[in-house]
């Protein structure tokens, strides 16, 4: 394949990945890796390096808007970034020593989990239990604008959330994805944050987490500029268009179809990984 053809194919594929990733809430990274590895035969190490760059681009772009709206809880974000960045570096270092086949299998499993999570019914918790000592110490209880009304909320189980974030960060560093699904589990289900706050805060943290692992990948020669270039430009454009469309779109059916497609991709990744199709 020539450099021009490769660039054009990846650019179009990444645009689609970014667009669908943003509409369904799954993120672009989880789609771009199967596209590069299964579709174009790119080694998974390069695919992960390119994907993590696109995660930084999209999350930073949307974080810019969320921060201004005052939805992001910066204190929760900063505190949990200790866990996610430590995890990210750990994951990126493990990725170097782990056989590519194992990485592919873990990736497939996380992909199935993440797509199942997008179908889950979102229950909005507005927790008013102010008993957590850690939440008080770290000043995490706050308020957010909910339909024009400033609504206060409390945070619980900070330790559990921190531990879950360590895990989310490790997977992000290992697989080159944002692991948004796991971050939302930590903040929605464990720490009981309102949905709008957990989504935007998770997005806010993603850029920093991905930057930590991207630096490790850069030093390992996993960030090939000729692959990362079309991936990040395509995903960013796709995600930007997706966010504009999202405002007036009914995504329930799209999410269903997409979850099925993504699960098929995931099973292919697992199968190829188990049968040694990723080389070594």
């Amino acid at each position: 394949m020539t450099a021009l053809l490769f660039t054009v194919i990846v650019l179009l594929g990444s645009f689609l990945a970014g667009f669908l990733g943003s509409l369904t809430g799954l993120g672009g990274g989880v789609i771009i890796i199967p596209l590069l590895t299964l579709g174009l035969g790119v080694d998974i190490h390069y695919a992960i390096g390119a994907s993590i760059i696109s995660v930084i681009a999209t999350s930073t772009g949307s974080a810019a808007a969320y921060v201004k709206e005052g939805l992001t809880n910066m204190r929760i974000g900063m505190l949990l970034e200790i866990a996610t960045t430590m995890g990210a570096i750990l994951g990126a270092v493990i990725a170097v020593y782990l056989n590519a086949s194992y990485v592919a299998v873990i990736f497939g499993l996380i992909l199935i989990f993440s797509s199942a999570m997008t179908l889950r019914k979102k229950v909005d918790h507005v927790n008013q239990d102010y008993s957590s000592k850690l939440a008080k110490f770290f000043k995490l209880n706050s308020s957010y604008p909910n339909q024009g009304v400033e609504t206060p909320y409390a945070v619980r189980n900070v330790g559990g959330g921190f531990f879950m974030m360590l895990f989310a960060g490790t997977l992000s560093g290992l697989l080159g994805i944002g692991s948004g699904a796991l971050k939302v589990v930590a903040m929605d289900n464990i720490m009981r944050l309102p949905f709008k706050v957990s989504t935007t805060t998770s997005n806010f943290m993603m850029g920093v987490t991905a930057a930590a692992s991207a630096i490790v990948y850069l030093h390992r020669g996993q960030i090939d500029p000729t692959i990362a270039m079309p991936v990040c430009l395509g995903v960013l454009c796709g995600a930007t268009v997706g966010a504009k469309v999202l405002v007036n779109a009914n995504t329930t059916k799209l999410k269903m179809v997409f979850a099925v497609v993504v699960s098929i991709l995931a099973i292919q990744m697992i199968y190829k990984g188990l049968t040694g199709g990723f080389g070594g």
Binding site: M1, T2, A3, L4, G41, V42, D43, I227, G279
Partner: peptide, 9 residues
């Protein structure tokens, strides 16, 4: 027009 190959890391 350069040929690219990313099969092996």
């Amino acid at each position: 027009g350069k040929r690219v190959d990313y099969h092996a890391f």
